[in-house]
Amino acid sequence: MPKKPAKSQNDNIFEKELLPHVGALQTFAYHLTYNQEDADDLVQETYLKAYRFIDKYEKGTNAKAWLFKILKNAYINEYRKKVKQPTKVDFEDIVAFHDTDDDRVSGYSDLREEIFLHMMGDEVTSAINSLPLDFRTVILLCDIEGFTYEEIAAIIDVPIGTVRSRLFRARNLLKEKLTKYAQQHGYTDFRGQKKLKRGDAAKTEDHTEEE
């Protein structure tokens, strides 16, 4: 019986350090492309590129950030050209133009818990997917994948100050969208009144939640 050829060191690195991130890349790609098939193609393309250029990867360094950078570039350089999204590009150019080294750091803290926790996955996903690409990207990288500002700056090739300001704007925009979704679904935020009513039903039924 013929012997199986021994795996090269690069094959081992590929399997042990790069392949474990497929799931995270799939999630990121899905929220860039909005569909599973394109997301899988993009992830596959990312891994083929990584394999071709594996000599440029230093064993034991940040494989996940390296792969995310390849995917982000593949998306911008190839995928978006293929599907052509001119209006988004224009809008994002404007967003990029307004990026500043704003040091303010934001949180979701003034979005009411009661409203937010009623939201299901579809609403959260829709709100994130409706953000402009640059904003969506930083939210996904920071809040979903847990990359640091430095790592995000390296992945998307912008200064750290820009990462901070994009996150600030992205979170504010996301908060606005989530609040709108909540209102559309009948949750009203009575700030200052310390009451939360659930649609019209609250007027006739005992659905009012005290803070």
Partner: peptide, 27 residues
């Protein structure tokens, strides 16, 4: 709470094993 909720609720594609196999086949 907010961040955990977003992380928990965001859509994540399922089991990546098929995609991993496709990548290996392609390589």
């Amino acid at each position: 709470l907010m961040r955990d909720h977003i992380k928990k609720m965001i859509h994540r594609p399922g089991d990546p094993s098929q995609l991993i196999q496709a990548i290996k086949n392609q390589i």
